[in-house]
């Protein structure tokens, strides 16, 4: 490398940097090819339209079309509803299980292994099994409910309506079943990081179990909850594999389980409209960004204002 045109000190600095550039180069080349290029290309494709194998600039036309598209809007609603229901159930339930596990002396490891099992075997495998578990006539769940005397039996995946025994409820039960062990483990790690002295001091001050729980446990778990809500929201927004296994890219029955990513997949690889699908991808990106920023501001506001 010819650096003779530069001042001496700068030349030495750059020469010393070279070895480090060599070490990080492979990663940056991989990022350039597989991350940066496709991302920029997605944005570009979303502004074009294919006319007789030629790309023609159409501006924001695809975005206007998406926002007026009933199917896209219902996919957006499904994604939001399923995500919200999932987080509202799995975080409190994970907290309860983690608290119980934290107080258990015998075989805590056994329960960790069992509760985490569905996470390992992939949501696709679990969704395949649950497709049959939810079968209304002879599925495991309804056979169990029948034994308990429930009548009439829920239709689960055969019912696309908005109710607590329909397909969306089934999809939420599935998601909670798969993810519960993970939420429990992360919450447990948060619980175990709370210093025991805080509880000892509370006992000295005469606090009972519930007071200690409300004034020590919950506030100290705040970072854990923030982390779980932020990563959980992103994951819920990109939900695909389990619902594809249950109801195909259309999210049957009656598109009740179609998420944004499934809509994107169907638009691109079944309707072959890659430009419209790219616009969907950009919108998904913007939604994720907005939700993450909102979560940060809403959940960490107290931390920021406290520092002022």
């Amino acid at each position: 490398m010819n650096l003779s045109g530069l001042p001496n000190e700068m030349r030495k600095q750059l020469r010393d940097s070279l070895i480090w550039y060599a070490l990080i180069a492979p990663t940056f080349i991989l990022f350039a090819i597989f991350v940066a290029y496709p991302t920029i290309e997605t944005f570009r494709l979303s502004l074009y339209r294919e006319v007789a194998t030629k790309q023609e600039f159409v501006g924001l036309a695809h975005y206007a079309r998406l926002l007026g598209d009933q199917i896209f809007r219902s996919a957006l609603l499904n994604t939001a509803l399923l995500g919200a229901a999932f987080l509202l159930i799995v975080i409190p339930l994970g907290l309860v299980l983690a608290s119980l596990l934290n107080n258990l002396k015998y075989a805590p490891n056994f329960f960790k292994v069992v509760y985490f099992l569905p996470q390992i075997t992939s949501s696709v495998a679990i969704a395949l099994i649950f497709g049959y578990v939810f079968q209304p006539n002879w599925g495991l769940l309804n056979n169990g409910l029948r034994a308990l005397g429930v009548d009439p039996l829920p239709l689960w995946l055969a019912d696309p309506n908005y109710n607590l025994t329909g397909s969306r409820a089934a999809a939420t039960i599935l998601a909670v079943y798969v993810a519960l062990g993970y939420y429990m483990l992360v919450t447990l790690a948060g619980l175990q990081a709370i210093p025991q002295e805080l509880y000892d001091a509370a006992v000295v001050d005469g606090a009972n179990f519930w007071q200690a729980w409300w004034y020590i446990t919950i506030p100290n778990l705040r970072p854990t909850f923030v982390f779980l809500i932020i990563t959980g929201s992103i994951e819920a927004l990109s939900r695909f594999g389990d619902l594809y296994t249950l109801g195909g890219p259309g999210g049957s029955p009656a598109r009740s389980l179609q998420t944004i990513v499934m809509y994107l997949y169907q638009t691109a690889f079944e309707s072959n409209d890659f430009n419209l699908a790219s616009a969907t991808a950009v919108l998904l990106f913007l939604i994720m960004l907005a939700v993450t920023i909102f979560n940060f501001r809403a959940l960490l506001q107290r931390e920021f204002s406290r520092r002022d």
Partner: peptide, 15 residues
């Protein structure tokens, strides 16, 4: 880290 896989998957497929 901010760019989810789904967002870049279509050009990646062509690539």
């Amino acid at each position: 880290l901010m760019i989810p896989f789904e967002v870049r998957m279509i050009p990646l497929y062509f690539l």
